[in-house]
Design a protein around this nucleic acid. Structure first.
Lengths: 135, 135
DNA sequence: CATATTCCTATTGACCTGGTAGGTTTTTTG
DNA sequence: CAAAAAACCTACCAGGTCAATAGGAATATG
């Protein structure tokens, strides 16, 4: 299993916000209700999206979240990388990659690298707008 | 992280056996030593490969394991699916998939399915023989 | 001030991962 | 025949991750 609920929920929230883009700030309570996801759990997932300015939230009554840009501007890959850490298929690739001393002679490394590239390209080739349109 | 050590170790063992194919039965102790993997841990990974006749082992002194076929016959995908369960990117696909009640309206499901297909095709398109030749 | 919201931190139970431990059975060899 | 070497089997364990829950603090509105 490559993508956990963290990434999947984040994507669903982003899609929900995209669907209601232009309607101002939407309380996460509403999104959680529509998507049937625990609000409390979502609150722990969202900060990484706000810190990186994919969404913006304002506090207080009447507050909520909204996308900072048009749905077409968001690549699925960016959302998943932020919430999942990275999309590396194996431990020796990706962000926290401690160099493997077998790397030079490793017969499988090129394969993993190629798959890593394909994965990133696949998810970077899809935007929220396209998902909304069922493309 | 999609592929755990289980799958990676299995693949390395298969590659090691492929590299020494034609040399008869090779003790796992030797492979574990060459690959620097815990023998005991390997012993827990191998049964699924023997049960599915990818390799065969004979007991007793002078025993060991060998491939049942030529290295070119083995698809990486088969080895990974056996040892990892499946290559599904999300829980709602793959073997133990309990049907999601949101499946019909799910905007992301087609994307996951497409990626699932790409993943299987990618790893099924590579054989042990090709890995040995650094293709 | 009451309310509604984001934001923050700690905790928890279940499961998975990577590995260890301690054998039993089977076969070959000296 | 006895010893050694190998596959095979089952239980256990420490650490981490996942998915969530809990309980608030800060902030803004009306």
């Amino acid at each position: 299993m490559m993508i956990s609920t963290r990434g999947r929920y984040a994507l669903r929230v982003m899609l929900d916000l995209a669907e209601h883009h232009g309607e101002g700030y939407i309380p996460m309570k509403v999104v959680a209700g529509r998507q049937n996801i625990s609000l409390k759990y979502l609150e722990r997932i969202l900060p990484v999206l706000t810190r990186n300015h994919l969404i913006e939230g304002i506090q207080g009554k009447g507050g909520g979240y909204r996308l900072t840009e048009e749905p077409a501007k968001y690549r699925v890959g960016d959302i998943l990388r932020l919430t999942e850490g990275d999309l590396a298929p194996v431990a020796c690739l990706g962000s926290g990659a401690k160099a493997c001393e077998r790397a030079d002679s490793c017969k499988t490394l090129p394969m993993w690298r190629k798959f890593y590239r394909i994965t990133n390209e696949f998810f970077d080739g899809i935007t929220l707008a396209e998902l909304l349109d069922n493309i």
